[in-house]
Computed example of a mutant assay.
Amino acid sequence: MASQTAPTIDAAGIRAPQFADILTWLQDQYRAIYGADVYLEADSQDGQFLALVAAAINDSNTACIEVYNSFSPATAQGHALSLNVKLNGIRRLVPTASTVDLLLGGTVGTTITGGLVTDADGTQWRLPDTVTIPGTGSITVTATCVKLGAIEAAAGTITKIATPTFGWQTVTNPSAAVPGSPVETDAALRVRQSRSVAVPSQSIFEGIVGSVANLAGVTRLRGYENDSDTPDANGVPGHHIALIVEGGDVAAIANTIAIKKTPGTGTAGDVVQSVADAFGGSHIIRFSRPTVANIKINMTIQALTGYSSAILPRIRQAIADYLNGLSIGESVLYSKLFVPANLGNDSVGMTYAITAMTVARDAGAYGTSNVVLAFDEAAACDVADIAITVVT
């Protein structure tokens, strides 16, 4: 008689019987040998023995399913997923330090070696190993925080030179630092793996976007291509591409764009980098950093049966995660805010009811309208900016 306990692989994938089904099958076979009147309940010795056998078979089936799933990046987990994505030329990101774009000023030709700067809190930020002030008298470089983790620095707070160098005169950060991150999660790695398949695509533009998206430290990215002869609605000049990149090293981003783009294609943006080619020539590459739109929420909820104040941090975190996960240029739709605010499929969402919610951008007035963002803006929200009033 054929066994009904083994996994099955077919066009739909792999499946295996449940523990209860395995145990029932074993009991039926046992009774077929020793008689239908044999006692096999959980309080019998034979019943317990069959349960142990069923558990061992179920564990083996589970291992088989995990092995089968480990061959696909869509279903692999942990170390297996890390091995899978190497086939796409990427690897799981390790914990990273915060990065920030710095504008350095000084005497033309000054070389800064091993430069360090400090912010208003005394935290040190490390410049690239060697930086040379170009003919313009200023240069933008990406500095890395000496500490790992989500170290923040608001715009204009990094102004102190910790390693004085003759000819190096000023330093400032025009934009806020991009916080570092912990070890990359499986979910985030799967998203990056799906992007990576665009690198060798037939579309040059998709290849550029895929390559920049896979650079270390890049958290969000939006690309625009204007193949017409006139500027488009976003102001991108004709026959230009415009990349809006959050995070990542400015030099690495510019080099990647220069390598991937076709000759004659212009680049648009307010971050300007000079990139040398293999023949010693110099090319100007431009891209942009997103303008951050700080989103604030003010809401009122009515406490229902089972409500606890411990739910409030979960509501705030769910809303903040949703807003921080929006793409660059993606507007904040007022009606969509109720989904994370209600905690989705979490049962605790039934313990309260939202009676009012308003949203604001930066220092603007609160309202119930959509927050429309420009093509180069990105929504950002801190849990501290989500005010919740509870009524009974």
Rank of each mutant, 00 (worst) to 15 (best):
A2E: 14
S3G: 06
A6C: 06
R15M: 05
I22Y: 03
A36G: 09
E41I: 02
D43N: 14
A54K: 05
I57M: 06
E66Y: 03
V67P: 03
S70V: 14
T75R: 06
S98A: 12
D101M: 11
D119F: 03
T130D: 00
V131Y: 10
I133A: 05
G135D: 13
K147H: 07
I151E: 07
K160G: 02
I161M: 01
V171K: 04
G180F: 00
P182T: 00
T185I: 02
S194E: 12
V197N: 07
P200W: 04
V212T: 12
A213P: 15
R220M: 14
R220D: 15
P231S: 07
A233M: 12
P237T: 02
A242R: 12
V250K: 03
A251M: 08
A252T: 10
I253K: 14
T262N: 10
I284C: 11
R286P: 05
R289P: 11
N298R: 02
M299R: 04
G306C: 04
Y307H: 01
R316Y: 00
L326V: 00
Y352Q: 07
T358K: 02
V359R: 09
V359T: 06
A363L: 09
D376C: 08
A379R: 10
A379Q: 08
C381F: 14
I388W: 04
